[in-house]
Design a protein around this nucleic acid. Structure first.
Lengths: 185, 185
DNA sequence: GCAGGCATATATCGGGAAGATATATATCGG
DNA sequence: CCGATATATATCTTCCCGATATATGCCTGC
């Protein structure tokens, strides 16, 4: 999934500015499984224009820089459908926490404790953020898209599983570091 | 975690060739939370040599190209410890599966089914691979490093949670796609 | 009341990561 | 005996991403 396809995906759901596309990967519905920064979004949008997959309309704003609203063209829609048909890459996690904990013996115990607690908190707040969006959607009465519902549920479930595992094994790790002979879990 | 630090980490545990470092991220103990390819490992190793953080010894081999065994220098050890002290980035998942399922309505139902089944299988086999390594380690009687034990346990737990969630919600998704009014989970 | 930080908004630059590709050979399975 | 796989290193090009630059309105705390 290159950033061009990611932009296509956001625009497939309606017109947006580069800034709004970034937000879709920061707080929006894609936040927990794809990412993109300005440094890749703006070049990607330029390419979409050149290739005729999107068009942009400039909206002048008082004070702020002009807002450029991007919208897919018919060939942009077609390109997105073709991208969806391509074989996906395997999923993967990138975790600096696990990397550091792998070397827990080389770290001061206080830092190990602070690291785990910080990440438990981060995992939990991610899970609650997504769960909150789901509750809102349910309450709104709008019809539920089964794909999106499954995807957001996956996020809640997996973040909770991660937080729960760390919570359950936190003590055993810290004890194991103090007396280096015992095992956790 | 740049690839230089990743190489430092593997070499911190003992000498290795570039090829062996790659395997540590494919099948080895780092496989489920960090990754690196040849295109970044070899340049990283060259830099480690230039900076005096590692030294290489060439072993001639019959037929095969010369094997270069890398080993950390004392300043390499120090650099690794400094790297461990730096603030970690937040964890994140990259999932093409979730991206595609988000747009499940735009996909043929047979493809959605095949995608889910393939990824359930992939998640399960990852979990079982790591669980197998853990069982082996336990049986070997060697002493258990608490950090590594927690990290591998995390992998088993989270991969299983992902596979279980998909298994539980597979039917509801497929039914929801057939009759677009109902919700999953 | 105002100063500082945050949100809105776009864009580029440079360093780095990653997949594809090239090269060479031994071994294993069908 | 042929092809696939494993061992082993290296580069090349494309793309990614964080940092930085620019400009201003709005809100909060002091």
């Amino acid at each position: 999934m290159d950033v061009k396809t990611l932009c296509l995906a956001v625009l497939f759901q309606g017109e947006a500015t580069g800034y709004e596309i970034k937000k879709a990967f920061e707080e929006g519905p894609f936040a927990h499984f794809q990412r993109a920064g300005f440094g890749s979004i703006y070049p990607a949008l330029s390419k979409l224009l050149v290739e005729g997959l999107a068009e942009a309309e400039a909206h002048e704003q008082d004070g702020r820089p002009d807002k450029k609203v991007y919208r897919l063209t018919p060939s942009g829609h077609a390109a997105f459908r073709r991208a969806l048909a391509e074989p996906p890459e395997p999923d993967h996690l990138r975790s600096d926490l696990l990397f550091l904990l792998y070397f827990a013996r080389e770290l001061p115990p206080a830092r190990v404790e602070a690291l785990i607690d910080g990440y438990i908190e981060a995992y939990r707040s991610q899970a609650e953020r997504i769960a909150g969006c789901r509750a809102e959607r349910l309450a709104s009465g709008a019809d539920i898209d089964p794909g999106r519902w499954l995807v957001s549920g996956f996020g809640v479930e997996v973040y909770r599983a991660a937080a729960d595992y760390l919570t359950r094994n936190r003590e055993a790790l810290l004890a194991g570091l103090a007396r280096p002979m015992e095992a956790a879990e």
